[in-house]
Design a protein around this nucleic acid. Structure first.
Lengths: 206, 206
DNA sequence: CCTGCTTCCGACCAGGCGGTCAGTGTCGCA
DNA sequence: TGCGACACTGACCGCCTGGTCGGAAGCAGG
């Protein structure tokens, strides 16, 4: 069976698409990343690959398997990618830093796969139109930037990059819904408070 | 027309659902948050409300308008909610901290709306099964925790909460795809590096 | 009683969906 | 030359989707 032959082609995106499975995974990742999982039909994928829809089912059992292959491959590769970039001899902080920059690197190289596997959803209405809504988003983001700028002006914060710091703050808060479970542990406000402590005081000892 | 009468019922979730529109918005937010936008059909919404599908179209022009109302309402309310919780007389850092905890509070109170409007997509396959994939996720998250723990043990980091700090790091990286545009600015690795600087050194002056 | 408005329903529609199947062409190998 | 394995196709299926439509209840004012 063809599927066994292409175990190595977990990826997409990096593959040169010489083989069908690699091409299918690559195009699928691109489509999932731009249009979401539900927004991408098997017809879309087939068309993007220049093949018939039936052929997709020759290589994969169903749509979900294509997605699973992308998501799994992306996650696994992320781990390996990051791990092999940790400096053996470095100090612990250097290694934390390397973890972060390697993840950034990975994100850049395998952007479609990354987005497909961390957000293969956000679905059309999230990105389409809604100017009015963006106005509020912008005001919200503008607010945190202004607060940070104030804290810099007052001498309480060191002169950090304001937009980036704002994004760090919003990222920590926005991502909470992905792991937070209301049943147990701290309340969201307590978590936010802890984040503030971490960001304000930093990790550095003494 | 009924729509005009219920302009105030932007919300859902908070509304006691005495009126139809509030009920529809509330149930929709709950469904969008759990099953995603595409995964929620108009029939689902109607059934959850105990009404006919046609009635939905009496109150809203289409599915997208329901979503837009939820998302807009949620975003707008977030801004107002946070803004009115900023202490007038506080120091700038206190106000930054208040911004964050207020956002956490908001998240908790309007969880469905929040999730629906920031992630109304992640779609079924993201949460369903994929044990194997989770294994890699866990190893990846385990890795950053171990690195942080090492840095604490070595005395480079102060003794912070390891899981929470790991989540802060991953949040900053995972959320990047929502605002990063490859055309301009820093590379993702540079951004990650800047994040490291912020988190390691903190915001506190001198 | 009638009239008119609003709320509400059941039946219906075209279209797109994921998935199937019978079959065709093309290889490598005996 | 024949044959099996494989890559591949187009027509097709049942289902579910978002959305429409004609009309039925309930209630107002006259």
């Amino acid at each position: 069976m063809a599927r066994a032959a292409a175990v190595k082609a977990v990826s997409g995106e990096m593959s040169d698409a010489s083989d069908r499975m690699g091409q299918i995974l690559s195009e699928s990742a691109r489509l999932f990343a731009t249009k979401g999982y539900d927004g991408t039909s098997m017809r879309d994928i087939a068309e993007a690959c220049g093949i018939s829809k039936s052929l997709l089912y020759h290589h994969f059992t169903d749509k979900d398997e294509i997605y699973a292959r992308i998501a799994l491959g992306s996650t696994q590769r992320l781990f390996e990618f990051v791990e092999e970039r940790l400096p053996e001899g470095g100090t612990p902080p250097e290694r934390v830093r390397a973890f972060m920059t390697a993840t950034g690197d990975y994100f850049q190289r395998y952007r479609s796969n990354w987005i497909a596997s961390t957000a293969a959803f956000w679905s059309d209405p999230e990105l389409r139109r809604h100017k009015e809504r963006m106005m509020w988003r912008d005001r919200y983001e503008g607010l945190i930037r202004r607060l940070i700028q104030d804290a810099i002006n007052s001498g309480d914060f060191r002169p950090v990059d304001v937009p980036l710091t704002g994004r760090l703050v919003l990222s920590s808060l926005n991502w909470m819904h992905r792991w937070y479970r209301p049943e147990k542990g701290l309340t969201p406000a307590q978590i936010a408070d802890s984040y503030y402590d971490l960001i304000f005081n930093g990790l550095k000892a003494e």
